[in-house]
Amino acid sequence: MLDALKVFTTVTVGLMVGVEFSVAFVINRILDALPGDSGQLGRAHGGRMLGAVMPVWYIGSLALSAVWAVAGWHDSGARLVVTAAALLIVSVIMSILLLVPINNRGKTWTPENRPDDWKEQMHRWDRFHYVRVAIIVAAFALLAAALL
């Protein structure tokens, strides 16, 4: 049962990393290259869609990692799992304090109501997101290493 938890947790975190990596390095670059207001509208839609899903994914990944850390406390990779869980905690706190406030504003914007500094705010979100991606990539790598 513990082996199934380990694999499920690693796959769950890995898929989350893949989504967040693609947002950072593919989707947002595509949206930024679209003409007119299309990119801003796409970011607003993405903020609404992913803003509804990602909190569950982040908290779920953290919970799975915590269960793995407790259940596998005496395994050789336990310290790696605890460190991964700590990194996931950092990613959740960072999300709540830095990324969610910007996302909550941005997902309501239209070309008619967006602030003058909307691009600056989106670039700030992108910079925070790059750091968050690095953190969750590290957590995923630690979980994968703990499987060995």
Results as ranks from 00 to 15, higher is better:
G72D: 05
D116T: 07
G36Y: 00
V81A: 12
R114E: 08
A44G: 13
G51T: 02
H45G: 12
H45R: 14
S61P: 04
Y58S: 01
L41R: 15
V133N: 08
G39C: 04
R29L: 10
V90I: 14
L64E: 01
D116Y: 04
A134Y: 07
L80E: 13
V11L: 15
N113V: 10
A33R: 04
R79N: 14
D126F: 06
N28P: 07
Q121M: 13
R48G: 14
S95R: 05
R124W: 06
L31M: 09
M94G: 15
G36Q: 07
H129L: 01
W73M: 10
W118S: 05
G39K: 10
L87R: 01
P115M: 09
V17F: 14
G60A: 02
F21M: 14
W118D: 01
V70P: 06
I89F: 09
L143T: 00
A52I: 00
I102F: 03
A78H: 12
D126A: 14
A78M: 02
S76K: 01
V19P: 00
M16E: 09
D37E: 15
I96C: 03
S91P: 00
D32W: 04
E20R: 10
G72F: 02
K119G: 02
A138Q: 01
G46M: 12
L142C: 01
A44P: 03
I96R: 05
M122I: 08
W125H: 11
L148F: 08
M1S: 12
L87I: 00
A4P: 06
P101R: 12
I89D: 02
K6W: 03
I135F: 07
A4I: 11
R132F: 01
D116Q: 10
A134V: 05
A134Q: 06
A78C: 01
Q40G: 14
R29A: 08
I136E: 01
L88Q: 15
A138E: 00
T10N: 11
R43M: 09
A141Q: 10
V53G: 08
M49R: 15
R127G: 03
G51A: 07
L148K: 12
R48Y: 11
Q40C: 06
A66W: 11
R43T: 00
H74S: 14
F128T: 07
A71T: 02
P35S: 14
G46E: 01
W109G: 07
T110N: 10
S65M: 02
A4V: 05
V137K: 08
T83A: 14
D117N: 15
G47E: 03
A33G: 11
L64A: 10
A4W: 15
A69M: 01
G39H: 02
V92F: 12
R114Y: 04
V26C: 15
G72A: 06
N28Y: 09
I93S: 03
E20G: 00
Q40Y: 00
A44K: 03
V11M: 09
V26K: 06
F128P: 07
I136P: 00
V137P: 02
I135N: 05
